[in-house]
């Protein structure tokens, strides 16, 4: 974490060492987040932790390379769209429960326990929540970082 405070005020991004290591690790961090989300109903983790890790991978990219490259990969409009998509997906799954009776009914077949495709709606809800949490926190971070950049131009 000390690396963040070491960022120079002028050049976009950090030194070559940090950039090289970031290039190697950022994909692995993203993949780990996806793994935690998908296996949320079998192992520790779930939508919240996985979404946070996915957001952290993009924030990592932004801290190392400056805001332009990170925003090119995942723009602000995309963050907005993904967050709304996550919320709507979660609500849709909840409303589809009315086909069988009540709100949040687990209407899909449960499958065999301890399989990846089991537990009905829980993996789908995990994916929806991870989209919502990850995009929301990335949007918060964009908003917090933009002020600094605008102040520098003044």
């Amino acid at each position: 974490m000390k690396k963040t405070s070491k960022r120079g005020p002028r050049e976009p991004g950090m030194t070559l060492i940090v950039k090289t290591i970031t290039r190697l690790t950022v994909g692995l961090i993203f993949l780990y987040g996806v793994y935690i989300v998908v296996h949320g109903h079998l192992t520790p983790g779930g939508g919240f932790a996985g979404g946070l890790i996915i957001a952290l991978s993009f924030i990592h990219l932004m801290l190392a390379f400056g805001k332009d490259l990170a925003l090119k990969k995942f723009s602000k409009a995309a963050a907005s769209i993904f967050e709304s998509l996550g919320g709507i997906l979660f609500l849709t799954i909840a409303l589809l429960g009315f086909t069988g009776g009540y709100f949040f009914l687990n209407f899909i077949r449960k499958g065999r326990p301890f399989d990846l495709f089991s537990a009905g709606i829980i993996p789908l809800c995990n994916i929806a929540i991870s989209l919502k949490v990850g995009a929301g926190l990335f949007a918060i971070f964009i908003a917090l970082v933009f002020l600094q950049i605008l102040k520098k131009e003044e």
């Binding site: 939508g47 919320g87 609500l91 687990n106 499958g111 537990a119 829980i122």
Partner: peptide, 24 residues
């Protein structure tokens, strides 16, 4: 009832999913 091995996931997304909706 839920088929999920992780009991915490089954609580926050099935038994008490309203809680998660409020959190969202």
């Amino acid at each position: 009832k839920t088929g999920a091995a992780n009991l915490v996931a089954s609580v926050i997304l099935d038994f008490r999913a309203y809680d998660t909706l409020g959190e969202a």
